[in-house]
Design a protein around this nucleic acid. Structure first.
Lengths: 190, 190
DNA sequence: ATAATAACTTACTAATAGGTAAGTTTCCCT
DNA sequence: AGGGAAACTTACCTATTAGTAAGTTATTAT
């Protein structure tokens, strides 16, 4: 099936993801990836025709990943708060590496992207949003969560707090993120 | 004092600001500015040595602007809600041109910026944050606003909702932004 | 054993990036 | 009237960008 190395493609995706979250989509190049992987930039082009294709694959990767998480959360015998914590933890981890959420990163470069990618990003957002909304909705129904906004609006609030929270954290520090993280839990808890 | 054109410098700042808010800092070039202004790119370099200097001037511009707004809000005989509305309106206007908050835009490219700019951005954030916090704090003291978080945390929540709200709006539409806008007012009102 | 193919490297493009040095035009001040 | 300076243009430069065509090496299926 393969010659030399089977997981170069996955490595490219891994590094590309890191670079986008740390520097931004328009700030990294194929040279950055090939340097870190110790291959030539043509090797990167071999696996992903162009930067758009790489981004496309990356977003699809996220979609797959979140689809899995959504399934797990639905099936898991966890309290709503615990489910939310599982989701929020992803942002906390980002924070610790001075990285930001990929959706936030892409959002800033959104107007430079081709329509095909824009559509995939919309798909990802709808997925994540729907997952949070569902978790909130279910938690409310079961009496585990209390909030007065609609689940959809509450999900919007929570998501924007988190996305901008990690962005803010790299400028003004992790304390601000922590304050936000605790507050968004309080908003749905008491 | 000047030859030919006195406001080229201001025009550069205006266009630069637009480009950053629409495409992002790393996605625009001096060529974009010079094209729109009908000058050569060397003319842009004449007014701003390099891209960093332009960004620096732009952030300083925002600082001046927000310092003025902060003064106005302190002096104005307005209810806290009206003051917040004045501030929030800026984000609503951004939304209408598919643009995002400059802080959010810079935050995504933050790790590609030199320290000098990073410090200026911190200064801007502290200013804006302090302004919102003060407005919230005063409003609470006067009994015009009601919220249980500390004014600082409430300011963090409000700011992150707005910053990510406009980012989200260009992807999933203005309705989501509107829902957020109304919700953040309800959070401090009732 | 060998043919096919996956996974590369080598060796290039053409376009754009940010940036500069030297000259030119226009205006103002004396 | 003439000097100086502000506000440019002309004409470059080097580095980097995304991208490609053709050749090489290693693996695998037959």
């Amino acid at each position: 099936m393969s010659a030399r190395n089977t997981d170069t493609k996955e490595e490219i995706l891994r590094i590309g993801k890191q670079l986008i979250q740390f520097y931004g989509y328009n700030a990294f190049s194929y040279a950055d990836i090939s340097r870190e992987l110790n291959v030539k930039n043509a090797a990167v082009h071999y696996h992903f025709r162009g930067k758009e294709d790489l981004l496309m694959a990356l977003v699809q990767n996220y979609i797959d990943n979140y689809q899995l998480l959504a399934q797990q959360l639905k099936a898991a015998p966890l309290k709503a708060i615990a489910k939310l914590d599982k989701f929020i933890e992803r942002y906390t981890l980002l924070c610790e590496t001075d990285s930001i959420c990929i959706i936030g990163s892409i959002a800033s470069d959104y107007n430079t992207l081709p329509d095909s990618v824009k559509e995939k990003v919309t798909e990802l957002i709808n997925l994540v949003m729907g997952m949070v909304e569902h978790t909130l909705s279910e938690g409310k129904r079961k009496g585990e969560l209390v909030f007065s906004e609609s689940p959809k609006t509450q999900a919007l609030l929570m998501m924007t707090n988190l996305a901008a929270g990690v962005q803010l954290a790299r400028i003004s520090g992790k304390k601000d993120y922590e304050a936000i993280r605790k507050a968004i839990i309080r908003q749905v808890k008491s």
